[in-house]
Design a protein around this nucleic acid. Structure first.
Lengths: 339, 339
DNA sequence: AGTGATCGATTAATCCATTAACCACAATCG
DNA sequence: CGATTGTGGTTAATGGATTAATCGATCACT
């Protein structure tokens, strides 16, 4: 069924070493044999057995992508556009560098997953004291971080936006639209993203008003409702679902957006351009960011140096939900509000 | 750095065969040695080398997921909620069965990807004459189809919805709301999904009016605009972006939804519940469907029989966009229209 | 002619785990 | 007591590719 290197060798009347060298462009061979071996290999439909190769070389040409943020709550985040974009972009980037990519389960340290063969791992929003980091390091598996890590070992790359700056920009924008009491809708996670935003927010406002949303939509609505009930006249949501949660909660309380409550949410979902009213969003460009992380990891694996891309740009798209006066439609924004 | 089976054997003062047997629960060993070997392996932090194991057993415990539908246009579909859901669900399902999952590039037949080690592959919406099918079959790699295949080899499973029935149901719904000239917004692909829907549509209407959308948003808007200009008073969109395309085109032409144009789109995006107006959607439950495909594939790999799940249920969520009279809000639907 | 390079290919070791075949020893049976 | 069965392991072959070491042959140079 499957043809091995020795069958090619036999057919081409050379040794397996010659076949290997011919196909890999290594060793010292005459152009004639090199070509002949290649032809024979093609004719026979030879495909190197990945297991054999991996066993010998110790490399698999596979990268892992792991989300450790939501520890226990593995994989409920399938609806979050942020991850969807990120995963597809990471896959494409890996392919570009000649790697396959497999998405690892959150419980990276479980038995059974320690046996998975990957040349390197991209960790998303690794929280403080992440056990996955220790596990990977002890196995000598190179890491690249998407989202600033808590501590960095030599040779490790990372990529991130400047979340504090982004937060300040959003808060400034909300304040400029007349917001007096800005609330923050955050999550429970202890990753760097959440913490940076919360810290920036707490430095900015006099009296912090923070709600916590997790994957569950109902919980988000409740948290948003509490913020509104507590007198918030503007909300900045740090996660994708926050926008819908606030819209929903506002409606339930009989509040109008943006008349009574201003709203900005972090999201990659283009649909926020078509909601009623269209919602202002902050895009973190997860696709571009993870692309850099993958590229950095591939570079490291190829023997290159570690790299850091801090402060990657974010994009605030102002839509009707956070505008009190004249609608300001930025590039890429949705249609004007009809409210 | 990494500890091999022979180091464990040496430490436990047994042969490597005994270690292997002890750890895998095979062979005939006394409980005492079995336990002792396990302890030593734990203490040393032994992890079986996947390459060595794969080489010997011929199995890798990795599944591949390939989207061949959009042939050349690889990976622009990162924004499509359908795929995002599907990929994450497939990953979770694979993990549940003890497999890792890697998403394969569209150009499956390219050199370099033929060398990837997977025990089986799930093909999404495989088009007619799909070269990937032939390639996989010739390599003896088991296939499970998500979306009815064009031809089926023994041992292959497939899963699909009943697209003709779903289409009829949507068309009936639109007709019941007073639509006289229903247009279809489809794609260029030749997969079974597109074809089933188009055929059902063509049998249903007297004078077909079909537009073609592809990944590009602008193109979609243009196609939708043409349909509306041609006098369509209702549109059924087969893909996720169709809803936004029609909303956008209608607005540009000064048409109201649902007053002038009724709209139903296929989508998994919850955001359609918050658009203005909320858009009726058909959910194909990609997560549940691919889960069955993965399970079927895992079953086949475990020696089980092939399975077929035809006619998996779809869910039509009626929202304001396709209701002329009193809003009918089905379970899971968004908020009532405010128009 | 003898010494050294250089070329072109081969030999054989190696990566690590699995497993069929085999072996030493003790207990059981006729 | 010799033959059989069972127990608890070991030995060695195997899977497929890579690669350091080696080797024969040819050619150049002193």
């Amino acid at each position: 069924m499957t043809v091995t290197i020795s069958e090619v060798a036999r057919a081409a009347e050379v040794s397996t070493a010659t076949v290997s060298n011919a196909l890999n462009g290594t060793g010292r061979l005459s152009e004639a044999t090199r070509r002949r071996v290649r032809e024979v290999a093609d004719r026979l439909g030879y495909l190197p057995n990945p297991a054999g190769r991996a066993l010998r070389t110790g490399r698999t040409r596979v990268l892992g992508l792991a989300v450790t943020t939501y520890g226990g709550h593995s994989w409920n985040f399938s609806e979050v556009a942020y991850y969807a974009r990120l995963i597809t972009s990471a896959t494409a980037a890996a392919h570009r560098h000649g790697y396959a990519l497999t998405v690892l389960p959150a419980a990276l340290t479980d038995r059974g997953w320690r046996t998975l063969a990957v040349d390197g791992v991209i960790l998303l929003d690794s929280p403080e004291g992440d056990p996955a980091v220790a596990a990977l390091r002890s196995r000598g598996i190179p890491i690249a971080f998407d989202g600033r890590p808590w501590d960095l070992a030599p040779g490790e790359s990372w990529v991130d936006n400047d979340h504090a700056a982004t937060t300040l920009r959003v808060l400034d924008h909300l304040a400029s639209q007349g917001a007096r009491r800005i609330a923050l809708l955050a999550g429970h996670a202890t990753d760097h993203y959440t913490r940076s935003c919360v810290e920036a927010y707490e430095r900015y406002v006099d009296e912090p008003l923070i709600g916590h949303i997790e994957e569950d939509d109902t919980e988000g609505r409740v948290a948003a409702g509490r913020l509104l009930a507590a007198g918030a006249d503007a909300v900045y949501g740090l996660f994708d679902g926050c926008g819908r949660a606030v819209l929903s909660a506002a409606r339930a309380l009989g509040l109008e957006v943006p008349a009574d409550v201003l709203l900005v949410t972090c999201s990659e979902d283009p649909a926020y351009g078509w909601t009623s009213p269209p919602v202002s969003t902050v895009s973190l460009d997860p696709a571009g960011t993870v692309d850099l992380a993958v590229t950095a990891l591939a570079g490291t694996l190829a023997g290159g140096p570690a790299t850091v891309h801090a402060g990657r740009p974010t994009l605030l798209t102002v839509r009707a939900s956070s505008v009190r006066t004249v609608p300001v439609t930025a590039a890429g924004a949705g249609p004007p509000s009809r409210a």
